[in-house]
Computed example of a mutant assay.
Amino acid sequence: MTRSVTILKSHFTKNGGAEKYARCLADAFHQKGCHVTVLTTGPIDTPFSFEVISHRLKSKTSVSKVWEFEAFCDQYLKKHPSDIVFGMDRNRSQTHLRAGSGSHKAYLEHRKSYESSWKRFRHMINPLHTTLLHMEKTGFEHPDLKVLFTNSNLVKEEILSHFVIDPKKITVIHNGVQWHEWQESFDTWEKDSSHFEFLFIGSDFHRKGLIPLLKGLRQLSERDFHLSIVGSDKNQKHFQHLAQKYGLQKQITFCGAQSDIRPFLQRADCLVIPSFYDPFANVTVEALAMGLFVVSSKTNGGCEVLTPETGCTIEDLKNMTPALEIALKHPKTRQRALLIRESVKHLDFSTQLNTYLDTCLLPTS
């Protein structure tokens, strides 16, 4: 009997990681012989091998768009019940849910560590935040929810601490990486500098922890290093000023947003992820697949895949220097890079995708 699968994803055709994951998941269900329908919004310019139904939003504000998409999904599912309703956003009702962005409640809690009391107050009264918190709580605690997927144990534990949910419903599947597809890029890496190359990737420099990284670099006794910063931030001039203030301006390059990060991964020795909060930063496994030593904060769920041979965690973001000193002892060599890359072979994207399918398509009783 053909199983019906309805995937809820408000944005489906954009180029982000979550959108790509949704498209791959939909195609994988389709390849398994399921009847797949995707409910989304916005223009659909590319033909798909499965059904995509897009709702044209009439709302103007962010919060009203959330409610309009929720109503659209609810109305459709009442008319077209599905064996599997797979949520990939924050809808109130689904049978399976991937909390790829973690818990919004936990995210707001983590923001308190680096934001002013005024901003925290604004979050409390912001209707978008209150709506997302309501959607999240209802979705996580809904009796129809069979499986809640998280991409790290960090997110799992945060959900269990904030919500009433049976732990048995939660399945942790770490983010995957295009391990096989990136083989050629790995084989052709070549360092073009005698310096130790640190790499920082991400936008929203504040949340991603660029300030503690700059402070940590300033305190290093070893000065023969360079840091490439890949990503954009509306306050970039502020961070450039900080780099100058700390005497690091000649050792740092702001590279802006990049469509392909592989050339930067090829040139680097170490990726640093000092995030105040990341459910699971994709760049963690991408860097490992390219043979880089990774330094990560404990509040990046991706740190769960690190070993002493492949990376280290930052014990205290207020003092990053010890972790950076460990990294300096692990420059990229062919032998070390091969060992690091091999550590995430089991996280190949296709393997992780099949784990989702196997869990969702278990025989029904």
Rank of each mutant, 00 (worst) to 15 (best):
E115N: 10
D27N: 15
R207G: 04
E197Q: 14
S194Y: 11
P263E: 07
M135Y: 01
Q266C: 10
S54L: 09
I165D: 01
A28T: 08
Y107N: 04
S259W: 14
S49F: 06
W179T: 00
F225S: 03
H180I: 14
E158Q: 11
I261M: 05
D45H: 11
S113R: 12
Q249N: 14
G311W: 01
P167T: 13
P322N: 09
L242D: 05
S152Q: 03
F140T: 01
E109F: 00
K79Q: 14
L328R: 03
D269V: 00
E190P: 03
K146V: 06
G291C: 10
A257M: 10
F121H: 12
H180F: 15
C34H: 01
E181W: 04
L328C: 07
V283I: 12
L265K: 04
W182E: 10
A323C: 13
T299K: 10
L154T: 03
S117D: 13
Q240C: 08
G231C: 08
F276L: 04
Q94Y: 07
I159G: 02
S221G: 08
Q236R: 13
C73I: 06
D27Q: 15
R122E: 11
L160Q: 08
R122I: 09
I261Q: 06
A289R: 00
I229A: 03
Y356R: 01
I84W: 06
L39F: 11
N354H: 12
L306E: 01
F254C: 09
W189R: 15
T364P: 00
L361S: 08
P279V: 07
H238Q: 14
F254L: 07
K237S: 13
N300M: 02
F349S: 08
H162R: 06
E190N: 14
I84E: 02
